[in-house]
Computed example of a mutant assay.
Amino acid sequence: MQHSLDMLNFSRIFVIAKNVFQEVIRDRILYIIGVYILILAAAIRLLPEVAANTDGKMFLDFGIAAMSVIALIVAVFVGTGLVNKEIEKRTVLMLIAKPISRSEFITGKYLGLSAVLALLIAIMTGIYLIFLQFGHIHHSANSIVIAAVFLFLQTSLIAAVAISLGVFTSSLLAIVLTLAVYLLGNITQDLLKFGKLSNSPGIQQLTQALYLILPDLSRLDLKNYAVYGLQALPEPSALIANAGYGLIYSALLLAIAILVFSRREF
């Protein structure tokens, strides 16, 4: 009996995730892919580094940076609206009135968006590798694929932040706060070092608190390693630990989102 219930819960989550995936794919994905192709086509023609340097390091860096920015935009702008728009339109009342728990609702939304990000990053990575191949730019495909996997983990974490903030605040404020978390999350280690250099106990406590609370997104950023090749990548144990960190942090954010959402009255 319990096994059947667990399967039923999973199927409800799958239906919600599928609906999110289909809606986002239908509305936006082709335009986003088209924009990325245009950006790479313009870059490979215009960046002087491509012509001056056979390694094409500038294009390598630009291509994966553009991929990161596009995935971030999708995670932030779609993620903040996934739950919030249901609340604002009052359609959430019909959804939670059905035999769907609030935890299934949040989990399904997150998994649907994560699937979109996975597909988007996979397609952009393939396009990026094609441009590198036809541009005769020296690169390590393995390093780029690993960096793309960690980009997915990073943007999935940001999607969890966006959904969590979208549960209890407006879409605009959630967007601003999520972008702030992203920016600060990339410099948490620098903030901690700054605090240690400061003579002010208050600043030291603040930077330590920010370091503990904010996600350390630099652990999931392998863009530079993709540019400089496989030999520069961290050890496999470090990669596994960093991937685990991203997954656990995302799970904690979802747990917070579920807790807040379960206490909301509609």
Score class of each variant (00 low, 15 high):
A51H: 12
L233T: 01
E88N: 10
G166C: 08
T91F: 09
V260D: 08
G81K: 04
V24A: 14
L184N: 00
I25W: 15
D6I: 09
G108I: 09
L233Q: 01
L111K: 12
F131W: 09
I32E: 10
R90F: 05
R263E: 00
S262Y: 03
G202F: 14
K223I: 01
Y249F: 12
A174S: 12
I73T: 15
I73N: 13
L165I: 08
Q22D: 15
L129P: 03
S237L: 07
N53Y: 09
I146G: 02
L252Q: 05
F105V: 07
D190S: 14
L212S: 15
I44W: 13
G185F: 00
A162D: 12
P234S: 02
I29D: 00
Q205N: 14
L119H: 14
L8Y: 10
H138F: 09
H139K: 02
V35G: 11
V181D: 01
Y228A: 00
L253E: 03
I256K: 04
L217D: 10
E104N: 10
Y225K: 07
A71L: 02
T54L: 11
L222A: 09
A257K: 07
T91R: 12
L254R: 04
L82W: 00
K57Y: 11
A241I: 05
G34H: 13
Y110E: 01
